[in-house]
């Protein structure tokens, strides 16, 4: 049964991850991110981390993805984006991607299939809890050795979190969250006399000009390209004149 759950959840998570990368519309990407997060939450339940499964759904799917969607709607950037805008740079990145894939996958599979995942064989993985730390075996079994309800997982996580071992980390995360809230307010506050949005051609960027003039879909039409190039040159000239007045 665990295997069936694993493979279904893994399929959901991987499909969602591919959707995040491949969907051109950011809204669709955010929605498929929800699929990945739910899949990972199911894995958490499979691994007996019940509290974190709930936190995963509430915090990630409930707060972070909603924040993403809110920003997408606020900025109005929910238009399609062409993935193949830069052929040469994209190829370099794809090569790098293949390298990363081979390294991560190969190394992890190699290490894992060696049976040395944890550094010690699983049978001898005797864990002596430090002060405040509790092993899962203690956490999920009661005194008679019977496995007990998932709420015990929550109790043990809370007890460890507020014990002497993790309490400083907990306080520091509280400070971090406070700083994040203040920083977000400061960054997004619109001060008085805010400068207008910069003109389209500043800084001069051939890629950007080509994008905006062809509506994000680069065509291989020769005439179109030459027109775009001429316009790009003109706009560069304009911006050079402007910056000549203001910049230097």
């Amino acid at each position: 049964m665990e295997a069936v759950t694993f493979f279904i959840a893994a399929g959901v998570a991987l499909a969602g991850a591919c959707g995040v990368v491949l969907f051109r519309n950011p809204v669709h990407a955010a929605l498929s991110l929800v699929g990945t997060l739910f899949g990972v939450a199911i894995h958490f339940i499979n691994l007996e981390a019940y509290f974190l499964a709930a936190v995963q759904v509430i915090v990630y799917a409930g707060a972070i993805v909603i924040l993403f969607l809110f920003v997408i709607m606020l900025l109005g950037v929910d238009r399609a984006e062409s993935i193949r805008t830069e052929p040469i740079i994209g190829q370099r990145h794809l090569a790098l991607l293949a390298l990363v894939a081979l390294l991560t996958f190969g190394v992890l599979i190699g290490v894992a299939s060696n049976g040395e995942v944890t550094g010690v064989p699983p049978q001898e993985a005797t864990y002596s809890p430090l002060e405040g730390g509790l092993s899962i075996d203690e956490a999920i079994k009661d005194s008679t050795g019977k496995t007990i309800a998932p709420k015990e997982n929550i109790r043990e996580v809370g007890r460890s979190l507020f014990s002497t071992r993790y309490v400083f980390a907990l306080e520091i995360t509280a400070l971090l969250l406070t700083i994040a809230v203040i920083g977000a307010v400061v960054l997004t506050r619109r001060p008085k006399g805010e400068p207008e949005p910069l003109p389209e051609d500043d800084p001069p960027s051939i890629i950007r000009n080509a994008d905006s003039d062809t509506g994000l879909h680069l065509t291989s039409n020769e005439d179109n390209d030459s027109i775009v190039d001429m316009e790009a040159n003109e706009s560069e000239k304009h911006s050079a004149e402007e910056s000549g007045v203001s910049g230097e």
Binding site: L47, V117, T118, S135, I136, S160
Partner: peptide, 8 residues
């Protein structure tokens, strides 16, 4: 890893 080690 945490489940494998039996560690919270």
């Amino acid at each position: 890893f945490g489940k494998e080690m039996g560690d919270l």
